[in-house]
Design a binder for these strands. Structure first.
Lengths: 197, 197
DNA sequence: CGGACAATACCTACTTATAGGTATATTATA
DNA sequence: TATAATATACCTATAAGTAGGTATTGTCCG
């Protein structure tokens, strides 16, 4: 089963990071991006196509019909509302609700329920970006800032092999620059920013 | 220089974890405990003796004179108030204030100031990370994935100049790899992840 | 005024990376 | 079991980046 992808959109940096930290306890999911700007929501949702969108109603682009259609009609995406308002359930319909004051267990239970529901339908897959696990590993080393030579030494393979892998990666992903690959690796949780130097 | 210790007390799990995540970017400090229960504050502060207490006023034990004495008289401990109220500064005196909506940089700047004040005794400064605004701009382009040639064309300068800037940047920051520079640029808000390709 | 710094430019020698190939053994999997 | 995909290896040429310099303008500030 592919991991469910989650987007978090909230004005507060602390809330975003805190929620991500809590959600790291979930097995079958990964938070792929945090959004802090109302204007970015539409574009990023379209680009990343998450399975779950956790969003503060304040960030909901009221005028963006595209996202709403995707949210409510196509039913591809689970919508979870994140807010400090108590009576949100009565005002807005969504698949789930998280309050700023909710404890970790409350949040995790609710999320697990959503994940179970989503995976029941068992859609095949859609991620065309299928790089092999070996390639993922190489990519990780690239994003960490190692040279081809260093990667080769570390993995006990020849530099030619590294080069070949690298060629395949850049071709598959359509990303040529090291910075692009680095961002890709971060976004896909291959590395964390702390590790890089 | 010993690392400064920080305690965080707030009702919201998300806020606690989010703030801790943000503060991990600080060099000379570490968050030693998160407190979610008003009753525990006094005891934990006494036991752990942190250098900095970040606390939601709702958690402040109004009846606990010990903590207050330590806070305001002995002046050993820096008090930072954490809240979603805007007008907090007028109501309560503290060494610093964090609003739920504050961005990461705002928070880190404020905290760094507190840390510097506390550590005034020792070292003068250490932020050798002073790259010029021009260098910042070059760095931005590097992190965006442009080649030296492309940067030169875009800024109407010769490729030699770009190379020289690049040399200075890598020397000043001590970061050699493009991926490292990319992460640096993201972390310092020179670019956002979306822009990279 | 004079020194420090920033921005610019150029040079050589050297290292790394990219783009185009070909090729073979192993491993899934239809 | 065939076939596709993966991991491995090597090649040539060319492009790009790094490391070590030097040098000329400005501008800001003590």
């Amino acid at each position: 089963m592919a991991r469910s992808t989650i987007l978090i959109a909230d004005n507060s940096c602390m809330i975003r990071k805190g929620l991500r930290s809590i959600l790291q306890n979930l097995e079958n999911s990964e938070v792929i991006q945090l959004i802090d700007n109302k204007e970015d929501v539409c574009g990023i949702v379209h680009k990343r196509k998450p399975d779950i969108l956790i969003i503060n109603p304040d960030m909901l682009p009221g005028d963006c019909l595209d996202v709403k259609r995707e949210l409510f009609n196509e039913n591809k995406l689970s919508l979870i509302l994140l807010s400090n308002r108590k009576n949100l359930k009565n005002d807005l319909k969504a698949d789930g609700y998280i309050n700023y004051m909710d404890g970790q267990n409350t949040i995790l239970d609710m999320m697990q329920e959503i994940l179970n529901k989503n995976n029941k339908s068992s859609f095949p897959n859609k991620n065309s970006e299928t790089i092999s696990s070996r390639e993922k590993n190489i990519l990780k080393h690239i994003a960490l800032g190692l040279t081809n030579k260093e990667i080769a030494d570390q993995l006990f393979i020849s530099i030619h092999t590294v080069v070949t892998h690298r060629k395949n990666i850049t071709q598959k992903l359509g990303i040529k620059s090291v910075s692009g690959l680095t961002v890709y690796a971060i976004l896909h949780n291959l590395i964390s920013m702390d590790e890089v130097k």
